[in-house]
Amino acid sequence: MKRVALAVRELHQAENELAGELLAVADRHKDDHDIFHVARDLAGWSRRHMHRLAELGRERDIALDGRPRDPEPPDRWPGDETLGASVRRKGAELLGRGEDPRLLLLRDLRGLHRMAAGVSLDWEILAQTAQALKDRELLDLAKRCHPGTLRQLRWANATLKENAPQIMTE
């Protein structure tokens, strides 16, 4: 059973990182308005997943690191720049220095896709474990959350597909 606790902890951590990265990508590509708004909406899904995992963790006494990687509430108003966002933007500028910002967009989407794929596999592991353990509560949790991860994954793929032709041929 220790391994189940570990899996829940790792998944919680992975969702946290995915939410943070979605917000970071949104901030790095503010002028790509679709990416900005949708990435922020999708970060909210990961936070919701974390919330549900945390509920389970409380019930089962699994210690989870409750601190979000990104300290802002998910309902931050899009026009605002909080301290965290400002730090991220500066970081992004440093990271992007010397790198073509359009290529950075592709790299960011590629990165998000990989992260979401990792989270998806973590949910897969949890769902399979739940079935093997006949753990209905855990299975329901995975059933509720995993589709959201798959949608995040498809979004990253579709957005990459949409943007790649123009960026690569300009």
Binding site: R151, Q152, N157
Partner: peptide, 8 residues
């Protein structure tokens, strides 16, 4: 499409 993410 996914009506929330827009992914076809």
């Amino acid at each position: 499409h996914d009506m929330i993410t827009g992914a076809p």
